[in-house]
Amino acid sequence: MKGLLGKKVGMTHLYAESGEQIPVTVVEAGPCTVIKAISKAEDGTGYNALQLGFGSRKKKNVSKPVLGQFKGTELAENPPATIREIRLADAPEQEKGDVLTAEIFEKDEYVDVVGWTKGRGFQGVVKRWNFGGGRASHGGDWTRKPGSIGMCEFPGKVYKGRKMPGHMGNVRRTVQNLQIVQVRGEDNLLLIKGAIPGPNGRDVIIRKAIKK
């Protein structure tokens, strides 16, 4: 198991030699600094993980308890914008202060990408749940409304899980088994085949695929 923090840059396509167009998402992956290496055996924490930091933030905007975590690394002067933990199967080989780059992944390797989808605000049932809505003509009076939401005196309640209007998007989603088409070590870029969740510029987590 290995993983990186990154940022979605955007999409484009590459040409294969056969002339085929390969849709790719460009992800700025790393460099990530190890803030803490958690080992099940040594720390008694019950799990193995790496705490990684990515990006940069002004030092004055970081609280002192958080800043204290970076003691002894370069991050103390240049704190990261994002801090996340990546679970590992085995005890981590890296130590505090080590830097992971996009080159931990190889071409043709499969990854899972975790992202936060585009926020769409408060949406009705037609957009949120793909309801059909009512008729526009012939006296139809409920164009984009949900219609009936239940029965009568029995059961006398609206069932839980009823699809209703509400907030849509901005939730964590994982896309599994995406192929890495290209690794650009010098720019810290990964070119991943297919689409990943979220708008351009939002943070993502790239992990080795668990099902491949």
Partner: peptide
């Protein structure tokens, strides 16, 4: 257009 993506596109032109 994003400069990073621009660069990738330029290489393929």
């Amino acid at each position: 257009m994003n400069p990073v993506i621009d660069k990738i596109n330029k290489e393929q032109e």
